[in-house]
Amino acid sequence: MTVELPGVFVRTVSRYVPDHGPDGQDGAGGRTAYRPDGETWLARLPGLIDTSLGRWRLRQDPDQPVRWGSTALVVPVLRPHGDPGMLKLGWPHPESDLEHLALRAWRGRGAVRLLAAEPADGALLLERLDATRDLTVGPVAGTCEALGTLLGRLDRPGAPWAAPLSDHLRRLTGRIAVATADPAAAHQFPRRLLLHAASLVEDLLQDGGLDERLVHTDLHQANVLWRTDPGEWVAIDPKVESADPHWAVAPALWNRWGDALAAPDLGSHLLLRLDLVCGAAGLDRDRARAMSVLRLVDNALGALRERHEGTGDEVTRAVAVIKAMQRG
């Protein structure tokens, strides 16, 4: 069976280059984090689809459109007895390596249910959710509270196969030091924000307790869909670390950015989001502010390192969120 690949998806993935893990490190769990370039993987994708359909005796659902994200194709399928499902095939990269393990750990509680997996092919068979209903629309209060509730539902002990946040922060310390010592960096990102971030990292590493929980680090408004039975929001597309749940608050701040810019006071709007998420999740507001600052600094330095088309906008957004968190 031939599944037509969406043109936007092909154009996006074809730009990806082979790479290794963060800062040249191995991937989570000690595995080699090598990933093929996008064009090589796209050439393999039709065969991976056919293999997956045959392995699980699936057929493409002709009444539902193929969906995609920045790194994965999701094909609506019908299982052997006609039950609906979603076949997800992702471009191999370190963040996706652990998705099947995380979904197994959650067992459908607060997250999309995993029906089957073939990690070697990057293939997942998932339950069918309502792909037309997410948290990218609706009042800020309700959507942020839903995200906070999900943070609580997803809480699990940290796992040995998930990379520890403490290692992530130590790498960030090195990147901050390099940027702080570079005179040219002052024209790209405020030095005072780098110094503030360096102090926050040092304090958090001294406090410890950073690696104790399994955390969906990319839990934001577009990564939540509606499960019609019994009627509840659940998370999709997990990117996980053994971390601190406060590390997961920041994506709720930098997503739905148009809504933030439309608010009468950007800083107050972002602090309201923070308060709503933390309140629903039972998290400490100050710790969430500190970790959100670090995530935005991490994002900005990553964007400046990669120099992609949206680098300027990403750095501007990061600075705006950091300043809002400092107001709190």
Rank of each mutant, 00 (worst) to 15 (best):
A235R: 06
T228D: 13
G312N: 07
W226P: 01
D286I: 08
D298W: 06
G258Q: 07
D259W: 07
M291H: 03
G279S: 13
A281V: 02
E241D: 12
W233K: 00
V234D: 13
L225F: 11
G312A: 12
D298F: 12
L266P: 04
V297N: 09
S242H: 03
A222F: 01
D265E: 14
A262T: 11
V249I: 02
G267H: 13
R273A: 03
L225E: 09
R307D: 13
L274S: 02
D229G: 10
D298H: 10
N299E: 10
G279H: 09
D286R: 06
V315S: 10
D286P: 12
P251V: 00
L253F: 03
L304K: 01
L272I: 06
L274G: 14
E309C: 05
A320L: 11
A263G: 13
W257A: 13
E309G: 08
G267M: 11
N255G: 02
L271A: 03
W247P: 00
R295I: 04
G267Y: 10
G231S: 10
A222W: 04
V234L: 13
S268C: 11
W226I: 02
M325I: 05
A252V: 04
A222S: 12
V293D: 15
R273W: 00
V297D: 08
L272E: 15
H308K: 15
G302V: 05
R295Q: 12
G310P: 04
P230H: 01
L304N: 07
D259R: 12
G258C: 05
L296F: 14
R327C: 06
P230L: 00
R307Y: 11
A263E: 09
A300K: 01
P251N: 00
G310Y: 11
I236A: 01
A288E: 02
H269I: 05
L266R: 10
D244S: 12
R227S: 13
W247S: 01
C278I: 06
E232N: 12
R305V: 07
D275F: 07
D229Q: 13
W257L: 03
A250T: 14
L296A: 03
R317A: 11
L294F: 02
E306N: 13
E309H: 14
A290G: 07
R295W: 09
